[in-house]
Amino acid sequence: MCHDCPTQRKSVQNERDGRHKDVEAQPHTDTWLTRNELAERLKLPPRTLAAWATRGKGPRGVQIGRHTRYWLPDVIEWENAQRQNSRHAA
């Protein structure tokens, strides 16, 4: 969830029974980050992300032509997994 945006709710229809329920809206689910933007977000050098990508580590990236982009929901999912893993290691 974006900490700069107010929490938003939206109604979503259940595919099985057709009922609606309120869920928290994800306002930035269509956001794609560049490697530099992700590096800034994680406070890491962009080269670290490039090295991780060659080893299959880090958040999932998508090649668009010669450029790597990171879908924000994938990044957030990866960040949450890292947080969970660090709690288990402590």
Results as ranks from 00 to 15, higher is better:
residue 53 A to M: 03
residue 46 P to D: 02
residue 11 S to G: 07
residue 57 K to E: 13
residue 58 G to T: 06
residue 39 A to T: 02
residue 17 D to A: 04
residue 22 D to C: 09
residue 39 A to F: 01
residue 20 H to I: 03
residue 28 H to R: 07
residue 48 T to Y: 03
residue 54 T to K: 15
residue 17 D to Q: 06
residue 33 L to H: 11
residue 37 E to L: 02
residue 60 R to C: 05
residue 14 N to V: 09
residue 44 L to F: 02
residue 12 V to E: 14
residue 17 D to P: 01
residue 43 K to M: 05
residue 51 A to W: 06
residue 16 R to K: 12
residue 14 N to F: 03
residue 25 A to V: 02
residue 22 D to S: 14
residue 18 G to V: 08
residue 40 E to H: 07
residue 38 L to F: 06
residue 50 A to W: 00
residue 26 Q to K: 10
residue 43 K to S: 11
residue 63 Q to P: 01
residue 59 P to L: 09
residue 37 E to V: 00
residue 51 A to M: 10
residue 21 K to S: 15
residue 69 R to D: 01
residue 65 G to T: 10
residue 21 K to M: 14
residue 39 A to E: 01
residue 11 S to D: 11
residue 30 D to E: 15
residue 68 T to G: 00
residue 61 G to S: 11
residue 64 I to L: 13
residue 43 K to Y: 03
residue 41 R to W: 04
residue 45 P to N: 10
residue 65 G to Y: 08
residue 25 A to M: 12
residue 39 A to Y: 00
residue 10 K to T: 13
residue 48 T to L: 04
residue 53 A to Q: 11
residue 33 L to Y: 10
residue 41 R to E: 07
residue 39 A to K: 01
residue 23 V to L: 13
residue 49 L to P: 00
residue 61 G to T: 03
residue 32 W to G: 10
residue 63 Q to F: 04
residue 37 E to F: 02
residue 19 R to F: 07
residue 49 L to A: 01
residue 9 R to K: 13
residue 64 I to E: 13
residue 30 D to W: 10
residue 31 T to L: 12
residue 53 A to I: 01
residue 56 G to A: 04
residue 59 P to W: 03
residue 13 Q to C: 14
residue 45 P to T: 06
residue 58 G to E: 05
residue 17 D to V: 03
residue 24 E to I: 15
residue 35 R to F: 00
residue 66 R to V: 07
residue 45 P to L: 02
residue 40 E to I: 02
residue 37 E to Y: 02
residue 65 G to A: 11
residue 38 L to A: 10
residue 67 H to R: 15
